[in-house]
Design a protein around this nucleic acid. Structure first.
Lengths: 243, 243
DNA sequence: AATTATTGTATCATTTTGTTACAATAATAA
DNA sequence: TTATTATTGTAACAAAATGATACAATAATT
């Protein structure tokens, strides 16, 4: 359980943190043929936000991204891909952080480091919805999956950050051996196709998709899956682990 | 002519700048069938570096990138693409900046803001070698094109920044309507093919390349070019301007 | 006027992708 | 037990994209 925020808010000058630099993570999951995103809600504020945090002075930024994700959601061992830096002057809005701190019974001084302008580095990841059991940290009420088409109003520019992450995901779906964390270990060709269709938001041709995927040589066939449906049982596949 | 650096070094606390955040730009040009990169050399130090700088407190980061490029090289109206954030703790090396300031007759205090840890946002661009006449700013001896295969030793991690920029360029050459700034206004199909071959570092099939490029519908044929060679004159093409 | 080198394009082969079809088969219903 | 149903895996063919070769056109040179 994370109580780093308490350290951050009472530490008025931001000692031990890189000033003005934040991290925001966009964690995609896939369930019910919908893309989901992990969203935190801050206690007693009705503020929704991406899991984010700050960089320690003695830590790589990429390292910080992993730590922040773990401390805010409990998710670990996830490949995070850095996708953009959000650095517009207009993006930062001190009011939401003020609200969060006040809801916690802390009234920050006007020159509190968290109220200054921040530039945020965006990271995204794809995780297996069933295996990723997010748990909120001590300053959050909840840490939940939201469908992309049913997002609550988000703090600051987090909505734009998600949009940009989705664009990056769509552009990279083919190249990166994505789905690596996204589906459970074993899946059917139908599962994989529905994932692609959802991410790319378009129908794919079944026969061609299957031929293509098998042709890539990254799938191994495990066993048959008895689905309980009135039809031939599909094979189960898994990604071939690379050395 | 830029004398922002004088402001930066005498301003020991970094007032007016975002602390710990730098910008580095990788400007590619193409000449003699070679990819070139713009490199500055600092006066009296034999230190070579990418054109870089810092972000004003009242400015977007993307804006700052354009301003920095202009103030350090004189280049303007260039589309810069943000490609990565270099945030490893190990990357920053105060010694080179100390050397630069000392060579200018200024001995910075140990806690000078420029000697602290920096995270750098990388941008790259492609420019027409013949039109981009770089001019060094007041703290640089020179601002020159270097072949990618003949780079001098560079400050800090600038070499890795260039490598990463090149990878991004290679991955995006097809998608982005690149070459937009990279070749002169009018060019032959051969010019364009040599550019692609150099960036991708592989031979392309002439007939297929020509068919593909013409098929994209982004080229218009201007006129014939009398090259002086003992052969048929090639057509000149230019990119069709989009609305 | 013949020669040379390069360009633009046609032609055909090969590969990839789109489309349709069909046999295989697990569950269900008859 | 046997037909029915829905879905899967794959074959077969069509269409499109790409690779490879060839050749006519032609500006400069001989």
């Amino acid at each position: 359980m994370n109580n780093e925020f308490i350290k951050q808010e009472t530490n008025v000058t931001g000692e031990g943190y890189l000033p003005g630099l934040a991290i925001d993570t966009v964690i995609f999951g896939f369930h019910d043929d919908k893309l989901k995103v992990l969203i935190l809600s801050y206690k007693d504020t009705s503020l929704y936000a991406l899991p984010g945090g700050f960089v320690h002075t003695e830590e790589d930024v990429n390292e910080a991204a992993r730590r922040v994700l773990f401390s805010r959601t409990g998710l670990t061992n996830i490949f995070l891909d850095q996708f953009y830096v959000f650095g517009d002057k207009s993006r930062y809005d001190a009011s939401s952080l003020k609200t969060i701190m006040k809801a916690r019974g802390f009234t920050p001084p006007e020159d509190h480091w968290l109220l200054k302008r921040f530039v945020s580095v965006g990271y995204y990841a794809l995780v297996d919805f069933t295996k990723a059991i997010p748990t909120p940290d001590s300053i959050s009420d909840s840490c939940d999956w939201f469908s992309l088409d049913k997002l609550p109003p988000l703090m600051q520019d987090h909505r734009q950050i998600i949009d940009k992450a989705l664009q990056t995901l769509q552009a990279n779906l083919d190249h990166k051996l994505i789905g690596f964390n996204l589906l459970s270990d074993d899946f059917t060709m139908g599962d994989l196709q529905r994932l692609y269709e959802t991410v790319l938001n378009k129908k794919l041709i079944r026969a061609a998709f299957q031929r293509k995927m098998l042709g890539l040589g990254i799938l191994e066939r495990i066993a048959k899956k008895w689905t309980g449906g009135a039809h031939k049982a599909p094979y189960l596949y898994r990604f071939i682990a690379r050395d």
